[in-house]
Amino acid sequence: MKRILRRIKPLKKCEVKKMMGKNDENNFKTPEGYFDNFHEKLMGRIREEEEAEDLSFLPKSDGFTVPEGYFKGLDQKVSEQIKDGETKVISLKTYRKYFYGAAAAAAVFLVIFGLNLNPQDTVGFEDLASAEIDAYLENAELDLSTYELAEIVSLDEIEINDVVENTLESDNILEYLDENIEDIEELNLNFEDYE
């Protein structure tokens, strides 16, 4: 800065007039060849800054190891798992078959019980059946993957609150934003443009 200031000489009146008339010229000067190697200098500075990001505080290894020969035996283990899985796999379609049967049986029972049921009975058959089905689905550990679920349930049938554990209240959203606000740059769609 000092160097630049030293180079600014007081202007003579005639020079000021000349300047005011011609906007494309001014009295500021730059060191010789300043713009010629500007790009190189800038890149040098960027490289320097990158190198200056000293990561020596990070350990070279993070310390994880594996049992000896683990990777050698892995192929075998995976292909055995796949073969096992192929014989044991429970097709969802067979369940569907039972669903129709169960629905038919439930309908028949509903008609029979519906006719004979004491109206004072507080536990309805419908409640019992759906409770049992719920309990079955809860406990049977069908362990459906996201892929499998996506195959059988169409997108229209899923509400957001079916898949999130907590009801998506604005509190939850605010809490989420609060926790993740550090990544706000992710919201900036044109972030790369500023790189």
Binding site: L58, P59, S61, D62, G63, F64, T65, V66, P67, E179, N180, E182, D183
Partner: peptide, 23 residues
């Protein structure tokens, strides 16, 4: 037994545990 880290590696894991998943 499959973690041969010393104090610094353990501390690194502790630090990582405080970060959001993405980071």
């Amino acid at each position: 037994v499959y973690f041969e880290g010393e104090e610094i590696q353990l501390k690194l894991q502790k630090a990582l545990a405080t970060l959001p998943d993405k980071q």
